[in-house]
Design a protein around this nucleic acid. Structure first.
Length: 483
RNA sequence: GGUUCCGUCGCCUAGUGGCUGGGCAGAGCUCUGCAAAAGCUCCUACGGCGGUUCGAAUCCGCCCGGAACCUCCA
């Protein structure tokens, strides 16, 4: 099915057509800066990218080469890996007097935690073509910076290298993703980096001069060695070019990255390689917590870690996030997780009913077309879920034919290739301890003898042991109670 | 200050000018010693004030409230 996506470059929903002209799609996601545990805003970001690549695979039938970088060198990782950092954990190892070693130990730790977090939210590592670390592409970045300078769009100043926006604007566009009022922008920018000598305030840094105690790399450019480290924007340009080749199909990120990060990335790649970056730029909206911006000062800042420690299931968080359109501001609430849990379970129960082979009817049903149509329409997951719920409401699984149940199982398996929050299998038999079964049997006997005080006492005891007893027409069922 | 987005049933979320969107919560009924579960049914909302229109949640204006970006940010 043809996929339609909102493209920030053209400000409109467009039919997606791969650059390659084949079924191969190349997609780049701006990954995390690994200086702390991922917060739920980060999680939304990567769930969006995951949704997109899964829809491309399942609905669009494409082979997706998905690349997501790890930013393991920047101001924050430098700050928090430095000697004396309060964030340093003993699991990271011993700090040494070599800042390059410290930052590597520090970022490897949070990188591992990050992979762990996204795995918990249903993102599969096998779906990645590559998860490159910025520090492993330093020479590619340096090569790009040299090219930018040779082409006349970069200059060295006091040991740093800058991109000359004024030179670039004389021959090319800037601000296609985000309406930047260049004149106003120049005038309004706060000059808080006095140590840098800039040609104009809107120039951005490609390579930052070494500072005492910070990690650095040698860099030979125009007969001088400017030791230092890469600027933030350059890494995506270099890695995208090296790993996927330019232009690739889709570049994803949060709305905040449109400017300056993505604008600068586009300018750098064009200025250095002479190539466009990507055909489609897809940006997701932010989330708020209980109607307010998530921030540490408001006390509404949550990492996935926090939520899991509170006992929330990351699958419910995934479902919750997929029940909001990616381009809308999402209001993250705790009651929202609770309702997501119940809603997810309702669909799960329906799937279990499909596996019930004790009863068949004659009716046939299908919902795949409507669901795929919604997903193909700019990843409209809320609409897709609406179709699924309406379908469940009007479908009596007891009336379905055997063939229809089997084909519906296959349909839900495909939905789950995207949502990835359900179990496509018969409901597992729960192993109930014999002592609980004995209690339940005793309770049934007490009930038969109308000894309700005793039966209530036994039911209470069963609940105490963490099991739920439900009476049915001809007996009872036992199951593990939730949380 | 500049640029932009959003206010939809108790809560969360879709929404294409006309036709009771979906989820959660809640209510009623069936079942039941009671409860739980299950099944059936009910719950007609669009921030405020104007305007355009035969007709507005949807278009326009103003106001109120929330958010984002402009500076590191997902």
């Amino acid at each position: 099915m043809r996929i339609r996506l909102y493209n920030t470059l053209t400000k409109s929903v467009e039919d997606f057509v791969p650059v390659s002209g084949t079924s191969s799609v190349k997609m780049y996601t701006c990954g995390p800066t690994v200086y702390n545990y991922a917060h739920i805003g980060n999680i939304r970001s990567f769930l969006f990218a995951d949704l997109l690549q899964r829809v491309l695979r399942t609905v669009g039938n494409y082979d997706v080469q998905w690349v997501m970088n790890i930013t393991d060198i920047d101001d924050k990782t430098i700050r928090d890996s430095a000697i004396g950092s309060e964030i340093w954990k003993k699991e990271m190892g011993e700090q040494t007097d070599n800042p390059n070693e410290n930052i590597a130990k520090f970022t490897r730790f949070f990188e591992k935690e990050f992979i762990n977090d996204i795995t918990n939210t249903g993102i599969e590592q096998s779906h990645f073509y590559n998860i490159p670390r910025a520090t492993e592409y330093i020479s590619e970045m340096q090569d790009l910076i040299r090219r930018i300078c040779e082409n006349g769009f970069g200059y060295v100043s006091e040991g740093s290298v800058y991109f000359s926006l004024s030179a670039w604007l004389r021959q090319s566009e800037y601000g296609r993703l985000f309406a930047v009022d260049i004149e106003h922008f120049r005038a309004g920018v706060r000059i808080d980096a006095d140590e840098y000598d800039r040609e104009s305030v809107s120039d951005f840094v490609l390579w930052k001069a070494r500072k005492e105690g910070e990690p650095y790399w040698d860099f030979q450019i125009s007969d001088e060695n400017v030791t230092g480290r890469p600027g933030w924007h350059i890494e995506c340009s270099a890695m995208g070019h090296k790993i996927l080749g330019l232009p690739f199909d889709i570049h994803t990120g949060g709305v905040d990255l449109r400017f300056p990060h993505h604008e600068d990335e586009i300018a750098q790649s064009k200025a250095g390689y002479g190539l466009e970056t990507a055909n489609f730029w897809c940006h997701h909206e932010f989330l708020e917590v209980e109607g307010k911006k998530m921030s540490k000062s408001l006390g509404n800042f949550f990492t996935l870690h926090d939520l899991m420690e509170k006992g929330y299931d990351p699958m419910d968080i995934r479902f919750l996030m997929l029940s909001v359109h990616y381009a809308s501001v999402m209001n993250f609430t705790f009651s929202g997780i609770e309702s997501a849990q119940k809603a997810r379970k309702r669909i799960q129960d329906f799937i279990y009913y499909l596996f019930d082979t004790t009863q068949f009817g004659t009716e046939n049903a299908s919902i795949k077309h409507e669901v795929f149509e919604a997903l193909a329409d700019n990843l409209h997951t809320p609409k897709a879920l609406e179709h699924i719920f309406s379908f469940i409401n009007q479908t009596d699984t007891k009336q379905l034919s055997q063939e229809s149940k089997e084909s519906l199982i296959e349909e839900f398996r495909q939905f789950n290739n995207i949502f990835n929050v359900w179990e496509i299998a018969p409901k597992a038999e729960e192993i109930i301890p014999q002592e609980v079964i004995d209690l339940a049997e005793q309770r049934i006997d007490a009930k038969k003898n109308k000894n309700f005080a005793e039966s209530d006492r036994l039911r209470n005891e069963i609940v105490q042991k963490g099991y739920l007893i439900k009476d049915t027409k001809d007996g009872y069922t036992l199951e593990l109670s939730e949380r």
